[in-house]
């Protein structure tokens, strides 16, 4: 699936998006896999309360299932307007 990063999450990881092969059942399980990869991922995902997640471009929470999902995005709370 495509995993996208925005704002300081993108800066910390150093990528706007990447393809990730995963069997993770939920967003939280995907986060655990990413955290285990490298320090920059561990730093970006250090505090989940400071992050929001969208699955296939809909805001959701970290318990959301990933079956059939094409796109997951991680970002800080939004500041529109």
């Amino acid at each position: 699936m495509d995993v996208l990063y925005f704002a300081w999450v993108r800066e910390r990881i150093g990528l706007p998006r990447e393809k990730v092969e995963t069997e993770a059942a939920t967003v939280a399980a995907l986060v655990e896999e990413l955290r285990a990869r490298e320090d920059r991922y561990a730093a970006a995902f250090e505090d989940l309360s400071a992050l929001r997640v969208a699955v296939d471009q809909e805001l959701t929470d970290f318990d959301a299932p990933l079956a059939g999902v094409r796109e997951v995005a991680f970002f800080p709370p939004m500041t529109g307007g």
Binding site: F75, M78, G80, G81
Partner: peptide, 9 residues
């Protein structure tokens, strides 16, 4: 749109 539209400043 302040808190639910995906913009970051």
């Amino acid at each position: 749109l302040k808190s639910r539209a995906p913009f970051w400043k």
